[in-house]
Amino acid sequence: MPNKPLVEVKKLKKNYGDTEVLKEIDGTVMPGQVICVIGPSGSGKSTFLRCLNMLEKPTSGQVLFEGKDTQKFSEEELTTLRERMGMVFQSFNLFPNLTVLENLKLAPIRVKKMSDKDAEEKALGLLKRVGLDEKANVYPDSLSGGQAQRVAIARALAMDPEMLLFDEPTSALDPEMVGEVLAVMKELAEDGMTMVVVTHEMGFAKEVANDVWFMADGYILEKNTPNEMFDHPKNPRTKDFISKIIGNV
């Protein structure tokens, strides 16, 4: 693994009014690493993820991308940051006014100034990769949840990002569709994509992640390898959480 971190988080804090959502977060993401962030609801996992690509502005602390403070980014640098750090949302957020193909083509054409032909070629290639090339010309509302999320992943990939953020990508899916989305994500991880995944899918975390971070009450309470985290958790809160989750499964 190369030793220059892609993302560094230092003493990150985020308040909404009087509510402290992130109290003090530190962490490093190395290129090619897959990090799964787990923890109870309301622990600040999603907020943490959204601070990485500046969808939320940190209250204090720093998020460094390749050593540069993202809070000091100009509008242009911010665009570049987001080009290189794609995001997949829990509720897909496909654009319902555009076809699947247009969903994929919009950003490459408008941001990367790609030609329509090149963008289309790229989009079709990506759709084939997620197994949805025959859905290119339909509108998102005719897709199943699993298909929609695979399109959303393809849309993020269309910008050739070096890193992908996943915000509970399978939480809004019917159980029988979870597998197809996780399969695509696993493939990405195997291809060397840097990924930060907020998830409740412990099986996926155990199998794919290099590192698992456990978050609760606005802190990262434990960072560990998947095996250690699930088999020998150190922090009592982690223990409690994992026993509950595994118990349910």
Partner: peptide, 9 residues
């Protein structure tokens, strides 16, 4: 948010 996350102005 999805649009911003793709880098669109």
């Amino acid at each position: 948010e999805a649009s911003a996350s793709l880098g669109l102005a």
